[in-house]
Design a protein around this nucleic acid. Structure first.
Lengths: 388, 388
DNA sequence: CACCGGGATTGAAACGTGTCAATGAAACCG
DNA sequence: CGGTTTCATTGACACGTTTCAATCCCGGTG
């Protein structure tokens, strides 16, 4: 394990990040390091083109039989099957999925179209989807919309071009027209965490977001808070709307006027940076007006907000209570632990994929709507209201 | 926005998560909700099969011309091009990438084979890769190895079957044989954060991990710590080994004996859970033996460790200093802020993809090795040593 | 011995695209 | 005006697979 001459050859135009790391690169380019055989694979030349036909020849059977061994092994006699399998191994044959899906009209991979890969919530969901897809031998390709309509559109296009078997989708907003187009193209999908797709549109799996807002509200009211702020993401996202609605419902239920009790602060995205920047608006109006508690649309927002509050010298939960939503991993790892609303993330993904499978296999499939129930997780970030 | 009858039909065998959420589902299945047209696309029947030939007919040209419009628009006269483009729009033609890559022998998507989607470090890297790939009109499919050799193998297989144009890869361990096989199959790749791939093997982009360990060590030594623990991930991962090595080198440099100054605690994975569970071992030997500072192989580990220390009633940095590695988003968001070693994540991904592009386009490409330099970020989690 | 049935295997025809040599048309030159 | 070059377009074929009707083989039955 020797140290080698660092061959840095990229100009600093490489940097396009938000944060600046451009200067972390080593100085100007030293001459390129070593030379190298062009590209021809070095070790074993590995038979350049082995197709199903080459395998067939080598095993003394017809291409059709090889195809059967690959796809319906039960239909081929044990003897020939073994012969073919040996040929496959010897030639190191690897199936060409382009040919396969060209002929069959559909590929064997499903898309997972996610709102934001950065959010740990989605990574958990994706585990569920992958596990269930593996069951059916389907490959999952993860596509990232980055909360941007245009990127979602590009990804949907990609799925159509690839003739994906299906997709699990978290739509960026209420406009489902691109998704409807995708379905007309013959690619089925299941909506995740978006309960408002009509049942004539497709299956959906979601968690009862209104209920989540409701139990969050009850928790805060139980602690004596009568003045809370909802730190919201974009209202174009259904989940956000419903959580807000549930929160207000909790106050109504307690005989308090939602309009005066819950204030709304809306941000454009659901990430920590937005949460941190929201702190001014949340605290606006001075200590007298300051809310006793903040329910965030998202753990990510909550995390950022807590950071911002710390900067301001405010202590959670002593000076102000903070709640998140999602119960991502780190909610339990920060200090104080984040009180939040848990969603069955893994099961969510798994259920969605299962529904998709049913739609793909079952010829007389009926669209379904699955609704999970959220759960309150109390940790250290919320405490009883202490009147100033 | 009406509320609907929740149609939960999954058995509780759905639950296979670590944490239990099985009981968060609504009670037993009520009868399925509404009925639904079978599957035939409802609204516009959308011409069932439009291919390049159908477009050609509609535009009064030959299929070859349509193909040219799609792939080398400059070679076709403006007039006909417009005619074809209109036909494409009118017929709502969408290209079939199976046919395309079957014919051309190579698909136009690249794989991004990641160690662990859960780790925010990788999600940042992936942004860089995606942005650079978009430049060349390449689609990125994200594949997750979950730090498991077998999953990596499956994913590599998948890339080969799909005749991916290339891949950006973070190998799970030192055994590169599967990757060499992939290259023999004709799929090029660039290794990310793994500097030890021979130059006859492929390009690599990495951050100087030994240097990172070194500056981390200097920082701690500068604070007066002479007894530190390295909370390590699996030593099969090169980055981990080098960071450890660098840390020891810092002590040697300061005239201290690394063997007595730095203790090693090794864990099987690089996630917060492992960090939290490592707390016993880190503190082993009682307060007298307790290290003044811990350098973690990873921010994730550090996060978990801090959590565990908190449980134990120890305060960071008063009782013990903690350092991470990576500078992921949350390092700046938790309290106290995590002192850590920053890597140019976005640029890393971008550089890797750029190298891959060069290998794909440039016929006489020479493998290259890019080495970025890490940077110390001091936050609140480290403080001067206070002798007990 | 002729016939039948059924399982195993074959052969050829698609699937939608990219490529390339060949063709046609138009522009240019002397 | 004939000859040559350039440019735009064409047609047909190949890519690797799946599918399905047709064929073959073999043992059992009347």
């Amino acid at each position: 394990m020797t140290r080698f001459n660092p061959g840095v050859t990229m100009g600093s135009q490489a940097a396009r990040t938000g944060r600046e790391h451009a200067d972390t690169m080593r100085g100007p380019s030293p001459p390129k390091t070593t030379r190298e055989t062009p590209l021809s694979s070095s070790a074993s030349p590995s038979h350049p083109k082995v197709g199903i036909t080459e395998v067939a020849r080598h095993a003394g059977v017809s291409p059709g039989t090889v195809s059967n061994v690959l796809n319906r092994p039960e239909r081929v006699a044990a003897g020939t099957r073994q012969r073919v399998e040996r040929a496959i191994a010897e030639l190191d044959y690897v199936r060409n999925s382009s040919g396969s899906s060209l002929r069959s009209g559909r590929s064997s991979s499903v898309g997972l179209l996610v709102l934001d890969v950065t959010n740990p919530f989605f990574t958990e969901v994706s585990r569920g989807v992958e596990d269930e897809a593996a069951t059916q031998g389907l490959a999952v390709v993860l596509l990232n919309s980055a909360e941007a309509r245009e990127r979602q559109r590009r990804n949907i296009r990609l799925l159509a071009e690839q003739r994906a078997a299906g997709a699990v989708v978290m739509p960026v907003d209420d406009d489902l027209s691109d998704l409807l187009w995708l379905r007309r193209q013959g690619t089925a999908w299941v909506a995740l965490d978006r309960g408002d797709v009509g049942e004539d549109t497709g299956c959906s799996v979601s968690v009862d977001n209104r209920e989540g807002g409701l139990i969050a509200g009850r928790h805060l009211i139980g602690l004596g808070h009568e003045r809370v702020t909802f730190l919201s993401g974009p209202f174009s996202i259904e989940q956000v709307r419903l959580r807000h609605e549930g929160l207000r419902a909790a106050f109504a239920e307690a005989g308090l006027d939602p309009d005066t009790s819950v204030r709304l602060v809306e941000r454009g995205q659901l990430n920590p940076g937005q949460g941190e920047r929201a702190v001014d608006e949340v605290l606006a109006g001075g200590p007298r007006q300051r809310p006793g508690a903040v329910l965030c649309a998202n753990d990510q927002l909550a995390l950022g907000l807590m950071k911002g509050l710390g900067r301001r010298g405010l202590r959670v939960p002593d000076d102000i209570s903070v709640m998140g939503y999602d119960d991502v991993d780190f909610a339990d790892l920060i200090h104080p632990g984040l009180t939040t609303i848990a969603q069955p993330k893994y099961d969510l993904g798994r259920a969605a994929m299962r529904l998709l499978n049913s739609e793909l296999d079952d010829p007389d499939h009926r669209h379904e709507r699955l609704l999970f129930t959220p759960e309150l997780i109390v940790r250290g970030s919320t405490a009883a209201h202490r009147p100033a």
